[in-house]
Amino acid sequence: MRDLLGYLLKRAAWMVLTLWAVYTVSFVLMRSVPGNPFSGERSVPPAIERQLKARYNLDAPPLQQYWDYLVGVVTRLDLGWSTRLEDYSVNQVIAEGFPVSATLAIFALVFAILLGVTAGIISAVYRRSTADHVLMFAAVLGIAIPNFVLASLAILLFVFMIQIFPAGGWGTLQQIALPAFCLGLPVAAYIARLSRTGMLEMLTKDHVRTAYAKGLPKRTVILRHVVPGAMLPVVSYLGPAVARVLTGSLVLEKIFALPGMGSHFINAATQRDYTLAMGMVLTYTVLLFVMNTLVDLTYAIIDPRVKLR
C-alpha cells in the first residue's frame, strides 16, 4: 500500500510538471500565431481595443501575462473569461461541456471494451473458424473507415432507413446511442485485434498448457489463465483509447450537433480564444494524465512482473 501511495504522489508531482510544461508550450504557441481575439467583422477603434485588452490582461508584457494567468489558475482554479463567448467564463464552458463529453466517452469506451474484448476472445478461441474470420474482417473494417464516414453512413441507415434514432441533438439516451456507437466502434476494433493477439500469445504459454494437461475445463482455463494475461495489451491500449475517443468526439460532436467540449476545443484554437483554448488544453491534459495513471495502475495490478515506479 505504501508504494501505491508513493507512486500516486510521484505521479501527481509529474502531473504538475506536465501541466506546467503544457501551459508554457501552449502559451508560447498561442502567442506566436498571428491574430488576436478581437478581430471581429468590424474594426474596433484603438482606444477601445486597449480597454478590451486591459480587460483580458492582454496589454501586460508577455511574461507578466504568463505569470498572472498561471497564478489565477493555481490559486483560484480560475481559467479566466472566454474572449469569444463573452457571456461565459472558461470554467463555465468546461462545466457545461464536460458532462456531455464525459457521458459520450464513457458510453463509447464501455461499449468498445465490451464489444472488443468479447470479439477478441471469441475469435482467438475459435481461431480460423468462420466467426473468427467474420469478426476480424469487421474489426479491420472498423479500423479502416474514418469515423466521419462511418457516422454519415450510420445516420443514413439508422436515422432514415430504419428510423430508430434521432439525427442529432442532446438530451435522451437515444440521442447518445448513435454517436457513442460511431465513436466506440473503431476503438472496439482495435481492442478486438489486440485481445485476439494477446489471447493467441497466451494460449501457447506453458502454464496454459499445464492447466490443460491438468484436465481443467476449457472455460476455466481460458477465463482464469488466458484472459488475464491476454488483457495486458488491451489495458495498455486504454490510455491511447481515451485520447482517441476524445479526439474522435471532435468530429462526432460536429456531425451530431452535441454540446460537448470537443467543438469548443477546435473553435477556441482556431479563433484565438486564448483563455478558452488554454483552459481546454489544461483540462484535456489533466484528463489524459489521470486516465494514463489509472491505466498504469491497472497494468501493474494485472501483471505482477511490472513494478510501480
Binding site: W14, M15, L17, T18, A21, V22, V25, S26, L29, M30, S32, V33, P34, G239, P240, A243, L246, T247, L250, F265, I266, A269, T270, A277, M280, V281, Y284, T285, V286, L288, F289, N292
Partner: peptide, 22 residues
Amino acid sequence: VDMLYSIPFIFVVIFLVTFLGE
C-alpha cells in the same frame, strides 16, 4: 512519454497549421 501523452496533440497540429500557413 507520459507527459507527451497527456498533451492533446490535435491542438499542436492545429496551431502548427495556422502558424505554418502564415
